[in-house]
Amino acid sequence: MTKYIGKRLLYMIISLWLIVTATFFLMRIAPGNPFASEKKLPPEIEANLQAHYGLDQPWYQQYFDYLINVVTWDFGPSFKYKSQTVNDLITEGFPVSFVLGFQAILIAVAFGVLFGVIAALRQNKWQDYSTMAVAVLGISVPSFIMATFLQYFLAIKLQIFPVARWESFMHTILPAIALAAGPMAYIARLTRSSMIEVLANDYIKTAKAKGLSGGVITVKHAMRNALLPVVTYLGPLTAGVLTGSFVIEKIFGIPGLGFHFVTSITNRDYTVIMGVTVFYSILLLLAILLVDIAYGIIDPRIKLAGKKGE
C-alpha cells in the first residue's frame, strides 16, 4: 500500500512538471502582456516593471526560476494586485471555494444516489420516470443558466435566499445547488443503471432467500456494489466542480479561487494564472488518488498494485 502510494506520488510529480511546463510556455506564446493597457506606459517605466518581475530575463532563466519557486511553494507576486502574492490569493480564496465545492459534491452525491436508488427500486413506475426526467433536465441545463434561474425565482421573486455575495450559510445554498445540479443528475442516472444491474444478480436472490427484508437487501447487499461506478465518477466530478465553480463564483460574486482565476486571465496576470493552475492540478491529482484508494477499500476484489506480492 505504502509502495503503491509512493509510486502514485512520483507520477503526480511528473504530471505536475508537465502541467507547469505546458502552462508556462502556452502563456508566453499568447500575445499581450500584463502591462499592456489602453494607456501606453512610457518605455522606461515598462522596462523597470519588466526588470522588477524578472520578465527581462531570457525565457529559460525565467522557466528555471519558476520551477524552483514552485518546488519551494512560492508562486511569486501578483502582477496586478500590488503587494499581494499568489500564495496570499490562494490562502484567501481557497477556503471559500472549498466550502462551496464541498457542499456541491455533498448535495450531488447524497441526492444523486437517493434519486438513483429510488428510480431503480421503482423501475418503470412513475417514481422512476419523474426522477429520470428531472435528471435529464439537470444534465442538459448548463450551470450558469441554472444559476440565473435560481437567482431569479428563489432570490428575487420568492426572496428565500440572498441573490449573491458570500456572507452567511444562506448565501452558500444557491451557488452550491447550481454547481451540484449537473453532477447530481449524472450520479442519479449512473446509480439507477448500476442498481438495476446489481439487483438482477444471484446474490440478491441469496439474500432474499435468507429472509432479509427489502431495506436490508438494498442497503447492505445492493448499494455497496452499485456505488462502485459512482465512486469512480468522484474523480472527474471533483474536476467538474472545480471548473464549474469558476463560472458560479463569478455569477454569485463569491471571492473564491475561481473568481481570482477568471480575473487573472483577463488581466493576463501570469503568476496568478500559473499558481492557481498548479494548485488546481495538485487538488485534482490528489482527488483521483483518493478515489483509487477508496475503490480498493470498497471492492475487496481490486488489489492496489504493491499491496500484496506485486
Partner: peptide
C-alpha cells in the same frame, strides 16, 4: 443456488 460464483455477495 446453481452458480456459487455469483450467488455470494462479492463485497
Amino acid at each position: 443456488f446453481q452458480d456459487p460464483m455469483t450467488s455470494l455477495n462479492p463485497t
